[in-house]
Simulated scan of single mutants.
Amino acid sequence: MSAQTAASPFRYGVFLRPDPRTCALLTDLHLLLRQSYGLVSCAAYPPHATLAGNVPTDAPEDELADRIGAALSDTSAFTAYNTGIEKGGGGIGFNLHDLPDGSPNPGITNLLDVVRQAMAPVAKPMDHYRANPLDPGCFRAHLSIASHELLLRPELRPEILDFVRGLAWDPPHSFTADTVSLFRFRSPDWHARWWRHMTWDHIRSWRLWPTAAVNLDAA
């Protein structure tokens, strides 16, 4: 049964979950930026790398889960690399898109493409994104450090960047990318500063094994 209504406040995201140490570091970092600068958009989400973000759709949740599960069934786990802090799309994040030599990581680009193809047929336009994960070639996988507020206050970006670099935190340089999750998001107004009032629910996760994905709810 879908959680949606005719005028749905719900949107859906498909996220790659980093390793536990990276999740803990991101959580601490987001809370520190909230306490130091009042930035709340990143802290409003679970730690993640976006594969498809805040997708508006009329498709029932069961269909979304079936689409994602089928698409991931032939998708293998891979090594993801955190190659450091970069600026992109107006925000600040850890680069998860590339290999250490600077070339795109085929594991992450394949996963982005697999999820894009699964979600694109049922997705409505996402007019509030600068870089849409469903548009191939326009999105770089990343772990957000500071995001939407910096689009509204770009003059704050250099200070935030210096602050984060000054922490000298050393996240894992690589991890096994093997957990993909579907989330439901709710906001009373997706065209306002929705991150201040957004809530979310975890719907389902899949584990990418060397040869196939497994529904963790059924494992």
Rank of each mutant, 00 (worst) to 15 (best):
L51S: 04
G13T: 08
A59Q: 12
P56F: 13
A219L: 09
W209N: 05
D162M: 12
E149F: 10
W169N: 00
P106F: 06
A146V: 11
V115E: 02
T79H: 09
I68Y: 02
L111P: 02
A146D: 10
R186S: 04
I145Y: 03
T199F: 07
L72N: 06
L31F: 11
Y81D: 15
D201L: 01
N95P: 05
F15E: 01
N132I: 09
L150H: 07
T176Y: 06
S41V: 05
P210C: 09
V55R: 01
S205F: 03
L99W: 05
T27H: 07
G137C: 13
R140V: 07
A7E: 15
P136V: 08
E86C: 13
V214K: 01
I145C: 05
L143R: 04
R157Q: 08
S76I: 09
V122K: 09
G102E: 08
G90I: 10
H97Q: 15
R34D: 04
A131T: 09
Q35P: 00
N215L: 06
D66E: 14
H30I: 00
P60Y: 07
Y129N: 13
T179C: 15
A52P: 05
T179M: 14
A43L: 12
L31S: 14
W206S: 01
L151P: 00
T75H: 13
G91M: 05
P56T: 13
G90L: 11
P46L: 01
S187Y: 01
V180G: 03
P121S: 12
R165W: 05
Y12R: 00
A44H: 06
E63S: 14
E159P: 04
D178V: 08
L182V: 03
M1C: 02
I160S: 00
